[in-house]
């Protein structure tokens, strides 16, 4: 008796939640899942996007951090959410890696892309007394394979793959510059400045203050053309003649099969968000690369990123 009443109640609750006709989306607060911890880069961008999106949509957008499993927990949660537009999430570079590395079957096809709002190209950095340019670095590495060691992230992290992809594209075996896995960029920079390794691969904003301090210099950026924020940093292609580019990225997405009108509403809102002065000043202050792509181009971007990271992972010998 009690049980049936509870069931009825539960059903009633479920009913009231699921029925909102999509006449006037959104009718209630939206949850934005962030697969990374509060305080990190992704979290900071997500909170900015959320507060601006809130202005556009007229309903609260609450950021919820679902951390763990190298982002797998949060990404899974976004993919498994009910496709009603009330649970969205920020998806990040790692999504392009999981299925290649065999850590999770998730890939971009599990999501409805809404908008790409940030990309940061990978770069190659050395100590100021290191090689003068990328060409010299690669020549040195080729001359004595294994003598120069590189770091910047864990094995299979984006910086590792960027390096493996670069070596691969330069017709060199990936162990010419062995990768020293570390837990993030801080210990890697520490290894570089203490003269334990020779190269650090990461995005430019991560090393900018060390570059300013004269402890590190950036040799090249893995971008199709120069980054307008860092006009003095040459591209890989310019210096070494190797056609290789790879970026870390962040974007907003919902679960697969989001209703077309909801996706449209969100995509339109995001188009306005990235134009807002608050967003621009935030991104440039934190030196995050502002790269916007609407729903459709974001989808295309994702499949391209998936392919490029796949190439790099196979080159690094990490594909499952």
């Amino acid at each position: 008796m009690k049980l049936t009443r509870r069931l009825v109640l539960a059903a009633a609750v479920a009913f009231t939640i699921s029925t909102p006709a999509l006449a006037q989306y959104p009718e209630r607060p939206i949850t934005l899942i962030v697969p990374w911890a509060a305080g990190g880069g992704t979290d900071a961008t997500a909170r900015t996007v959320a507060s601006l999106l809130e202005q556009e949509l007229g309903k609260p957008v609450n950021v919820v951090n679902r951390t763990g499993g190298g982002g797998i927990v949060g990404h899974t949660e976004i993919a498994n959410a009910k496709p009603d537009g009330y649970t969205l999430g920020v998806i990040t570079t790692e999504l392009s890696l999981y299925h290649w590395l065999g850590t999770s079957p998730l890939d971009y096809k599990n999501y409805t892309p809404i908008a790409l709002y940030n990309t940061d190209a990978q770069s190659i950095n050395v100590r100021p007394d290191g090689p003068k340019d990328l060409k010299e670095l690669l020549a040195k590495a080729k001359e004595k394979p294994g003598s120069l060691k590189a770091s910047g992230a864990n094995r299979g992290g984006a910086p590792h793959l960027a390096m493996a992809g670069l070596l691969n594209a330069s017709q060199m075996p990936v162990d010419t510059v062995p990768w020293i896995p570390t837990d993030g960029i801080t210990p890697a920079l520490q290894l570089l400045t203490s003269n334990a390794i020779a190269v650090v691969g990461t995005t430019i904003p991560e090393v900018q203050s060390m570059v300013d301090a004269g402890e590190v210099k950036t040799l090249a950026i893995m971008r199709a053309e120069r980054d307008p924020s860092f006009p003095n940093v040459p591209t890989v292609k310019e210096v070494a003649g190797v056609d290789w580019y790879l970026s870390s990225w962040r974007g907003v997405a919902g679960p697969k099969d989001l209703p077309a009108d909801v996706a449209k509403r969100l995509s339109d809102a995001m188009a306005k968000v990235v134009q807002k002065p608050e967003f621009k000043s935030f991104m440039s202050a934190r030196k995050f690369g502002m790269d916007y792509a609407d729903a459709q181009s974001f989808g295309k971007f994702l499949s391209d990123a998936d392919e490029r990271f796949g190439t790099a992972i196979k080159a690094a010998g990490l594909a499952k």
Partner: peptide
């Protein structure tokens, strides 16, 4: 999957 990030 929950344990992938380690024991909290």
């Amino acid at each position: 999957v929950q344990l992938m990030g380690g024991v909290s």
